[in-house]
Structures are given as C-alpha cells and as structure tokens.
Nucleic acid binder design. Sequence first.
DNA 1: CTGAAAGCGCTTACAG
DNA 2: CTGAAAGCGCTTACAG
Lengths: 344, 344
Amino acid sequence: MAIKRVTMADVAALAQVSKTTVSFVLNDRPGLSAATRDRVLAAAEELGWTPSAAARTLSGKGTDTIGVVLNRPPRLTGIEPALEDYFQGVEREVSHRLISLLTRVVSSHEEELLTLRSWWYSRRVDGVILVDLRANDDRPSALRNAHVPVAGVGDPKLRNQLPVAWHDDSAAIDQVVGYLHALGHTRIARLSDRSVLSYAKIRNDAFEKSCADRRLSEQMVCPIEATAAAAAQTTRELLMLAKRPTAILYDNAVTAMAGMAVAQEMGIQVPRELSVVAWGGSQICNYTHPTLSAVEGDDLGLGMQAVRMLLSKLKGEDVGDGQCATPIFVPRGSTAPVARVNSF
Amino acid sequence: MAIKRVTMADVAALAQVSKTTVSFVLNDRPGLSAATRDRVLAAAEELGWTPSAAARTLSGKGTDTIGVVLNRPPRLTGIEPALEDYFQGVEREVSHRLISLLTRVVSSHEEELLTLRSWWYSRRVDGVILVDLRANDDRPSALRNAHVPVAGVGDPKLRNQLPVAWHDDSAAIDQVVGYLHALGHTRIARLSDRSVLSYAKIRNDAFEKSCADRRLSEQMVCPIEATAAAAAQTTRELLMLAKRPTAILYDNAVTAMAGMAVAQEMGIQVPRELSVVAWGGSQICNYTHPTLSAVEGDDLGLGMQAVRMLLSKLKGEDVGDGQCATPIFVPRGSTAPVARVNSF
DNA sequence: CTGAAAGCGCTTACAG
DNA sequence: CTGAAAGCGCTTACAG
C-alpha cells in the first residue's frame, strides 16, 4: 500500500546529476546545457516524477491555490443566483490557469473569518476571494491585519480597501425605471432581497432616486427573504391593494417567476395588467409564458475579474479599477405599456 | 512583508521544552504531565501558533482535504441541477467535518483524469469524489491503478468497483407511470437528458419497462440536450403530432417549466389537456402556474453519503452499501386525469 | 555550467 | 515522562 514516491533524488540518480540540477531543470531556470536538460527531463519522464506540493510550499514557494468560503445562513435554501455565478466565474478563471480552488461552506461570519485566517496561517492558500462584499464589511480589515492577500466582488464602496470587481447596478435600475415610466407606469414596486448583501441596498437606493428624478411618488420597496415563497406571498399582498402597482421589479429570475405565477393565479394578466421585470436568469426568463423581461449582467465575469485582480496583486502588479460591463435591460414578454382601463 | 511564522520551535522555546514534546501535546498524545501540557498549550496560544499544513503533510500526515472535479462540456450552459446538488452535498458534509474541498472545473475527460491523478501524486488530497459516475466509466479503474482513494455518486452498477452513493430512480419512474396510467394516460412521452450521465439511461430503461408492464405501447423517449431551449423545441414538436402525448415527463424542473410554457403558448391547457411531470426543483415547481408535479429525490443527501463513504474508507473502516432514500412522486397542479374529449 | 549543504516546519522511532 | 536526531522532498544561496 505504501507506494514509494518518485522524488527528485531518484531523478537525479538516474540522470547522474545533482538534485540542484534537477530542480533547476524542472523549474526552467536558464543556464543549463541542453544535454543535461534533456537527460533530466527524460529521467523525470521515465520515472513518472510529480512534484510534491507540500515540499514545494515548505521551501517557500506558493501553493498555487486560492480560497473561497461561502457563508450561507443555516437551512436557508434561498436563491442567490448571483452568488452562484460569482463562484462559477472564480472557478472558471482559476481552473483556466491551473490554479486550484479551496472551498468551504460555513454558516456564520465568525466561522468564515476563522476559516479564511487559518487557511492563510497554515499556508494552504496564496490568497482569498470574497464573493459577497457588503457595505461596512469587516472582513477586509480583519484580513489586512492578518496580511492575507485578498480581492473581492461586490460593493464598489470598498474599492479603497481592496481590489473589487463590480458593475453599475444603479445605471441598470435607472434604465428599467425610465423604460417603465415611458410606457406610462407610475406605480412601481420593487421586491428586494433583504439579506445583508450590498447589491439589494444599492439597487434600492438607485430605485428611489430614479423614481424621484421622474417625480414618481408612489413607488414602494418591499424587502423580502430571497425565496420564491416569500416573493409569492408579498406579490399576493401587493396585488390585493386597492391601488396595486402596475409594474413589479424582482431581484432574480425565480422570484420574478413566482410573482408572475401569483398574478396568473389571481386572474391578473401579465403584461396587460401588470408588468414584471426579473434580474438575471436568462435560462429561465426565455422559457416562461409569457417570457420575462429582465436586467442581465455578467455575474460570471465579475468572479473572473476578481480572480484576475487577486493574481495581479500576488505578482505585485498594479491592479487598477475592477469595473465590469453595466447590466442591461432586456425587454421580453412580461412588460407592456400601462393599460388605459382606468382612464376611460 | 515577510512575516516570520510562529513555529513549533518558538513554542518549545517559550514553554522550555523540546519540539518533540510540543508536537506530542499539540497532537493529543497520551502520557504527558498535565503541567507540561498546560505550559505548552499556553505558549502556543500566546504566540498564536498555527500548524503548517505543508510541513505536516510532508512528514507523512494526510492533507485533510478531498478533491472533486466537475467535468462540463465547453460553453454548455446546460442545467444539470442534480450535479449541482451532489456537489453541494459533498461541500456540506466536508465542511461539517472541517475538511477542505479542492475543486476544479474542466471540459474534457482527459483533463479530469489528469487533474485527479496529479492532485493525488502531488499529495494535495487524501482522496477524491466522483460526482457523476457513468456506466462504463473508466475513471474508477484508472484511479485504482494510481491507488487514489475514491468514492462516488451515481450509477449503482459500479458498486463492485468502488463505494457508490445511489438511489433507486427506477422505482420513482414506475410510481409516475403507474399514477399516470391510473389517471387514464396511455400516450406518455419522456424528454430525457441525452448526455452521457447514467441517470438518463437508467430512467429511460425503467420508463420503457414500466410502460411495457402496463401494456402501454405508445410511449416515446426523446433524448435531448438538457437545456430549456431544447426542451421547448422538442415539446413543440411533440404537441404538433396528430396523436400527441397526453403526458410528458422531464428530467428536471427548468425543462419541465419550459415545456409547460410551450403548451400554454400553443393554447393547450395544462393539466386538462396535457399532464406535465418535472424532476426535482421544488423551489421552482411550487411557484409556477399551475404548480408542477414532480419526482423529488434527496440529491444533496447523495453527495453527503459519498463523502461519508470515502472517509470511512480512508479510516480503513467497512464501507457497506450506499443506497439512499428512493425519490418520491409529488403530484401538484400539472397532472390530471386524461380528458375524455375524444371518447364522445 | 554544476554540486554540496543548509533550511523550510513538522513527525516519529529511538534513547534515556 | 521528555529529548536529540533523522527524515519527509523540495529550493536556493554559495562555491567552484
């Protein structure tokens, strides 16, 4: 069972050179004669040598792995599609460069910091990515004190503290409100993820401002748990109002779909009597009936950008600003001009 | 920048004992005087000592991390919700035990084997989990040759080759077919993921058998790419047939939702004129209009079970069979008795 | 262009 | 109950 590992010493013996030489060849150091080089490479190949990650990092090299920890509240089966996408983006960029990703799911803030720090102290990662930066997030400073290299995706307000990949949700919100206003909507509601994540607040503020800019005073913001159940429930309440909204914005595709189903269940026609706007989830939005208009951003791209920024930082390069493409509004079948019914 | 690490030598110096003693204390070895023990612990605490993962594994200890690689065909934004759930399950079980997960996304079979092997050879993982075992999968034997400890979730046919977490999809399919038959359906179609993953074939075979057992001869199996787009397209074709099916089974929630939207788009009423059955995705199925009847299995549990089996194996314990709870059929609003229209 | 030697931070027989 | 010493498999000044 205890298979003898092939080490550099074995390769050195076969190639009849010193371990130093083997190390130099295997690390592509310049200044080795072609003959030696070939002999070493052939020997390594013949023996099937693989570097020992442990020995390498113990000798002061990096680990070629970065860490991500996902903090999920206990038993919350909520839908945070953006988080998933950020993670996928990180995964993709990292795999692409043959770097490994160390991951852990935790259920509390303390656990998260603990994991992040211990990964760093035990030298298991070269740096970490924070996928869900919040306003007043204390992780950046905690990690800075521990000297952990870090980059993240999320709230651009933290850009002065660490490299952040972000995009302008406010502009996207303004597009949507402007569009709906142009279609005659004046009573617009927004069901917003009430979690601590920054994006909801950023969008809420932008929503309020966009409505105010256009002198729309009947807007409402309803903070809800980011689940289909909560979205359905709150939508039902909104649609029971005497002066119900004529358009509702959601923070993701599943909640929007749930909201639309409620309208249908109540006999309210989408989009004739109610316009519905989702966020993200084109895979779903294109295949509902009617199809769902939605804001679409490149969340995968944000994750990838964060990784690039972290790697630049590790190499000591200049990192720069991490702004990514602004999400755009894609109208589909769930938005329409407001019906004139009441005007007649 | 180059912060001096706190090592066991530092702790030994402070506590005025040898490194051996420090190591023994920190590893909970029996036979240390309480006094020494306390002194060492206090010193370690005071200095903020953290073990060096590299040094530890270099000295022959394990890595306390297991590996998972996800093989995704390039640019396929397909929906394989079960895979995600398996992964989440693995993640959860592993985090729970303070073990780390090393992950990588690749786009080919070769790349996958390469990664798995190299992780093992470079001693970055103690073992690996295969989350999508296929019939005729060559990974188990390849990994066995490389002596990589492995467990997986998927096709139970591989149980004699490695520990496998699995559940009985056939029984679930038989429940559904039996139910639909009881409601008078005789022309049932099944849109099946055409990927290499075993589950589709297992379900197809079960479907054919269940229909045959009940002398239903007009069933059809349509292998499609597991995307909403493909499901919509194929559903449209099925519903254009002169003798169109009265019930359609899908392999996940998003494709079922897409199929139902097509029926609505064509003016075919669900469930009066067409019954629709999804698989999994209760978060979605409960919030469509009508709600989606679906087969529900504990995919998270499968991932967790696979981890437990791997860990047992690593400890040299007996692993046993990994059968998990059989998925059950949950009828909701998208299934109904077949309409008698044609009989009049 | 190449080698002997020290060092990274642990673990673990082996002595005492 | 405790310690001196070797070893895990690399990297890297430092010599030659």
